[in-house]
């Protein structure tokens, strides 16, 4: 797998980073080295092996569908936002 400036730009877009040119070129080396390392898994024979995505021993843990009191109220949560207007979080224009 070849890792070049184009790969880094694509991954930066997927990850939502505005990378500087300097950081971008450093990442070419870093990401290439990491991808080289993880590629050693190719040596492992995994034919006919089922994947494991999680190791929790239970499945479908349900709770009743009911409204429970929350620890944090609306004022506390809104107070965390950098800019708020009329009980709403303010962001720059979308379009």
């Amino acid at each position: 797998m070849e890792v070049n400036q184009g790969t880094i730009q694509h991954l930066a877009e997927l990850s939502h980073f505005a990378l500087s040119e300097e950081e971008s070129s450093r990442l070419v080396t870093d990401i290439k080295n990491i991808v080289d390392y993880i590629s050693q898994l190719d040596e492992l024979d995994t034919s006919d092996i089922e994947p494991t995505y999680q190791v929790f021993e239970m499945a479908n843990v349900w709770r009743p569908d009911e409204i429970l009191p929350q620890e944090a109220d609306r004022e506390q949560l809104l107070a965390l936002a950098p800019t708020v207007e009329n009980y709403q979080i303010k962001v720059p224009k979308v379009l």
């Binding site: 880094i8 991954l11 980073f17 505005a18 990442l27 991808v35």
Partner: peptide, 23 residues
């Protein structure tokens, strides 16, 4: 806002891991 906040707010190692994850 997303791109610059995440670029300035994460450490280099955070970015490497996020990008490897995206990859």
């Amino acid at each position: 806002l997303y791109y610059h906040t995440r670029d300035e707010g994460f450490m280099p190692e955070n970015k490497r891991r996020i990008m490897i994850g995206s990859f």
